[in-house]
Design a protein around this nucleic acid. Structure first.
Length: 426
DNA sequence: TCTGGGGTCCTAGGACCC
DNA sequence: TCTGGGGTCCTAGGACCC
């Protein structure tokens, strides 16, 4: 049976989230900034129309902000994550199989459902809008890659009303000819440049390339993409999230950092955040990597380095990970540089139940195990209930000189009682 | 001068995604 | 003044083994 894939993707997701709780933003250009208020990471149609480009540094657009009444927000991932969960819950109600692909996208399998895909997806779109307040566009096709492409068409041309089905269209070739090769899922900047120099500039031209050429220059991944463009699905739906193989927490600092003391605080905080994610997926880690770097945009001496520390017994216990992380930092820290960014990466991740016990641990070394489990459980529960950072390690510091700049943060409307919007009777 | 061959495992680096 | 963060997968090449 021919498979039917649908891709639901929220429009300007982060910016739309800000609008949900602030109706005065309707019709106004809205942009959301990356951590440290550095880059523009989301923008509404009105902001796009002003010429604001995604992933460009925000300061380039300062002049537009006042003159065009642009609303600007620091990224509020707590809010966006919560609204994302709501959207995904609605989508799950419409298809037997779904895959949450990113914070604002999900694939749905409509194969075998006794519905007209186009009409059904219009119903999905209306329901998401009504139940969450968020606008979503849906693309439909015989493979994930074509569903992605159809989604792009749905978004681009308002005449489609936010839903587009590319399946079995007589003008499919013309549609593919209208898509830049770099807009194909799986073709990034490098491959696009390579293809263009060989005269392959559109999705259509890519689809019709010989397999051998694609395999040779774009590996089996490229071949998969081309097959999908031909309508032969070879990327399947993954309903259950596999446990992550690497867990990373890293940040650019709000200002340059010079001392190891301050870096130790940042590393402690990042390690604690990694450990929390690790425990959430019931895993343990065997390696902790720490890296730090100076600001590559600055005309100052540059330095970057990383160290990986192995842990005898894979663990999810924050203090053990913290000790390793600080050991790694000590190994790579060099005084005299202006540091801009650092991070902690956990790897060697195994299911906690299968974690290999350390044969060399001192006798009784595991005696405190139950207490450690209880302690971490309590820590995570408190932080989940009362907000991240309610309980934290003293090593993460109180000064927090490294913290991000977030000057335009919206309230956490959905996750903090004190930020709950209040409806006033007039 | 001549200098096997085949296999596995691991890591670094490069490509991609949102 | 001001330039994000968190992931995945594949390949090439080296180490090591017999």
């Amino acid at each position: 049976m021919k498979q039917i894939f649908a891709l639901a993707d929220c429009n300007s997701f982060y910016a739309s989230c800000e609008r949900v709780f602030n109706p005065a933003l309707a019709g106004r250009p809205v942009v959301v900034l990356s951590n440290n208020d550095g880059c523009v990471i989301a923008r509404t149609a009105e902001a796009k129309a002003l010429g604001i480009v995604g992933f460009e540094p925000f300061f380039k657009y300062q002049h537009l902000i006042a003159t065009h009444d642009v609303a600007v927000y620091s990224a509020n991932f707590t809010l966006y994550g919560d609204l994302s969960n709501r959207v995904m819950a609605v989508l799950r109600g419409f298809a037997p199989q779904t895959e949450v692909y990113s914070i604002d996208e999900a694939f749905l399998i409509l194969t075998g459902m006794a519905v007209d895909p186009d009409a059904y997806c219009r119903c999905i779109r209306d329901t998401v809008r009504q139940w969450t307040g968020l606008p979503v566009s849906i693309g439909i096709g015989p493979s994930k890659t074509l569903a992605k492409l159809a989604n792009r068409i749905a978004k681009k041309d308002p005449a489609h009303g936010g839903v587009f089905d590319i399946t079995g269209r007589p003008d499919a070739d013309a549609l593919l000819a209208g898509i830049d090769v770099q807009d194909v899922w799986g073709v990034g900047r490098r491959y696009a440049k390579f293809l263009r120099t060989r005269g392959i500039g559109t999705a259509l031209a890519l689809r019709d390339l010989p397999d051998t050429f694609v395999k040779k220059h774009m590996t089996v991944m490229g071949l998969r993409t081309v097959e999908e463009l031909r309508g032969n699905p070879c990327i399947s739906i993954e309903e259950t999230r596999k446990p992550k193989q690497a867990i990373l927490t890293s940040r650019s600092f709000g200002r340059d950092i010079q001392t190891e003391r301050e870096l130790r605080e940042a590393v402690a905080e990042f390690t604690a955040m990694c450990a929390e994610k690790l425990r959430a997926q019931r895993s343990a880690a065997a390696f902790v990597m720490v890296f730090l770097e100076t600001n590559g945009f600055r005309d100052a001496p540059q330095y970057s380095n990383a160290a990986t520390i192995g842990i005898a017994e894979p663990t999810d216990y924050t203090p053990a990970l913290l000790a390793a992380a600080h050991q790694g930092l000590a190994r790579i820290f060099r005084p005299g540089y202006l540091y801009k960014r650092c991070g902690v990466l956990l790897s060697g991740i195994v299911p906690k139940a299968a974690a290999q016990l350390d044969c060399f641990a001192a006798a009784g070394g595991n005696a405190g195990h139950a207490q450690k489990v209880a302690l971490m459980g309590a820590l995570d529960a408190v932080n989940a209930r009362w907000g991240r950072g309610t309980l934290k390690y003293a090593a993460a510091g109180v000064e927090r000189s490294w913290k991000m700049r977030q000057l335009r943060l919206s309230p956490r409307f959905t996750t903090q009682w004190e930020d709950l919007p209040v409806a006033k009777a007039v």
